[in-house]
Design a protein around this nucleic acid. Structure first.
Lengths: 244, 244
DNA sequence: CACATAAGTGGCTTTAAGCCACTATTTGCT
DNA sequence: AGCAAATAGTGGCTTAAAGCCACTTATGTG
C-alpha cells in the first residue's frame, strides 16, 4: 500500500470497495411475558437464505438509515412490534466463516424487553409471518443460521440478570402489583422466590413508587406501583437464590 | 431483488461485493499487572489513519486467515506479545458512522489477561512502537478513534469481575502466594481487601492447589499455589465490597 | 537470642437472604 | 349479618458469608 503524507491525502485515495468485508447484521431477541411464560418474537423468513425457517428478527446494518449499531436494533424493533421505547441491551457478537451460506458474516446481538400490552404484532412490508413463541418451545423449531445459539446467549444473560438486578421491571406494564412483579421474576428465573426476601430487595432498591391506586380482585386488594426512573436499573450486591 | 426457487440457485447469483458494508475490525485491551499497576498494551500507529497516535492493538478481520472473530483476536495478541494462551473475553461491539474517518465501521472489542512474565514485547512486521502503559495514565495520551471509550468498557468489565469472580488469577504467573494474589485483586479493584475475607473466598472457591514449595523472604515464608483448572473461573454469590 | 516483619488464623460482629407462621383486607356465599 | 375462602402483606427468628481486628506463627537479621 502506498503511503501518504497527510491523513487527508490518504483518505482521498481510500476506497472501501477494494476490500473483502464480512457481512454485518444485527439480530435481536425481543422478550415479553405473556400467559405466564417468557416469550420471544420470531419471524418466518420470506426470502433466501433459510427461506421459510423461523429466525430472530434482524437484518443488515443500513449505512444510510442507521447512524449507529443501536439504531439498527431500534429500527428492527419498531418494524416488527411498533414499540420504540424498549429496554435494549447488547449481548454478544458472533462472527465466523460458516454461520451464513453467503460467506464470512458477523452479527451483533441484542435483547429487548417490552411489556406485552405495548405491542400488537404487525406484518411488516415483506409480509413475513411474525409470532411470539415461548422460549421453552423454541427448541422444536429449528431456527435459521445460528439463531438458536444467539437466543440462548440472550436468554442466559437475562436469566443471570434476574438474579442480581432489577432489569425485569422493564417487562411490566405501566402499573402493576408486587405479586405480579414477583411472578415475572419467577418466570424468568424458572423457580419460585421467597416472598419476604423479594419484597425486601425491591424495597431496599427504592425503584418503585406507589400510584395510590389499588388492584382489586376476589380477595384483599394489592397496592399498585409504577417504576420510578424508567431505564435505570438497580444492581444488588447478592444473588437471589430462589426458594425451596 | 429477484427471487429464486432454491437456496442453491439464490447463492449462485449472490455477490457480496454489490453491497455497501461497514468496515469490521477487532480491537483488544491486553492487560497485565506490573510494578504494582494495571497496565494495558498500546501500539503507536505506523499508518494512516490516526498515524502516530497511540491505539489499542487490533485490526481488520482477515477472512482468509481467520475462521472466527476470536481467531482475529488471538492472532493480534500473538503478533504483539508472542502469547498464545491468554484469558480472552469478548466485551462489546462499537459501531457507527463517525468513529473511523474511512466510513461506517464497527469494532468487536476483547480484553485479554496475561501474566507479566509471559511476554517480552516484540516489534511486529510493520515495526510499530509497542508499550505497556498504566491504565491510570492513558488519559494523557489521546488514543486514536474511540479507543479510550473501548478501553474504558474493557476496564470496567474487568473491574466488575474482580468483585464476583476469580478471573484475576489469569494475571498471575505459574506459581504465586496468596498475598500476591490478593495484591493483584486490590490493584484492579483500586482499594484494599480484608485479608480474612479474601482468603475465605479463595478457599471456598477451591480453585488453587498448593505446590508444596514455599516462597521465602525476610520474614515468615508463604505457601506457593498453582491454579487448579486454568481457564475455568469461579463465580461468587456475593460481591467483594473492599475494606475500610 | 531477641526483634522486626510478613504470613496466616480465631472468633466476634454485621448484613442480607431464607423460612414460615401470622395478621389484614377484600369478595362471595349462606 | 356473619363466616369462609383467598390473596396481600408483615414479624421475627435462622443462616450464610463478609467485615473487623487482634492474635499467633515462622523466618531472616543484628
Amino acid at each position: 500500500m502506498a503511503d501518504y503524507d497527510t491523513e487527508e491525502e490518504f483518505l482521498k485515495h481510500y476506497n472501501v470497495r477494494q476490500y473483502d468485508l464480512p457481512l454485518a447484521t444485527v439480530d435481536m431477541a425481543i422478550f415479553t411475558v405473556q400467559d405466564q411464560q417468557l416469550q420471544v418474537l420470531l419471524v418466518k423468513r420470506a426470502l433466501h437464505p433459510a427461506k421459510g425457517q423461523w429466525a430472530l428478527p434482524g437484518g443488515f446494518i443500513d449505512m444510510k438509515k442507521d447512524q449507529s449499531l443501536s439504531d439498527t436494533a431500534y429500527r428492527k424493533l419498531k418494524e416488527k412490534t411498533g414499540v420504540d421505547t424498549p429496554y435494549l441491551e447488547q449481548v454478544a457478537t458472533f462472527g465466523n466463516a460458516s454461520r451464513d451460506p453467503r460467506g464470512w458474516s458477523l452479527t451483533v446481538s441484542y435483547f429487548a424487553l417490552i411489556s406485552s400490552d405495548q405491542t400488537t404484532l404487525s406484518m411488516d412490508s415483506r409480509s413475513e409471518e411474525v409470532a411470539w413463541v415461548p422460549v421453552t418451545q423454541v427448541g422444536e423449531l429449528e431456527l435459521a443460521f445460528d439463531h438458536e445459539q444467539i437466543l440462548q446467549a440472550c436468554h442466559e444473560r437475562l436469566r443471570a440478570k434476574v438474579q442480581y438486578t432489577s432489569v425485569p421491571v422493564n417487562l411490566m406494564p405501566e402499573v402493576f402489583t408486587l405479586v405480579e412483579l414477583q411472578k415475572t421474576f419467577e418466570i424468568i428465573l424458572g423457580s419460585p422466590i421467597e416472598k419476604k426476601s423479594f419484597r425486601r430487595r425491591i424495597a431496599d432498591a427504592d425503584i418503585l413508587e406507589e400510584t395510590g391506586e389499588m388492584k382489586s380482585g376476589p380477595s384483599r386488594p394489592a397496592k399498585l406501583y409504577r417504576v420510578k426512573n424508567k431505564g435505570e436499573n438497580y444492581f444488588f450486591t447478592r444473588l437471589m437464590e430462589g426458594a425451596r
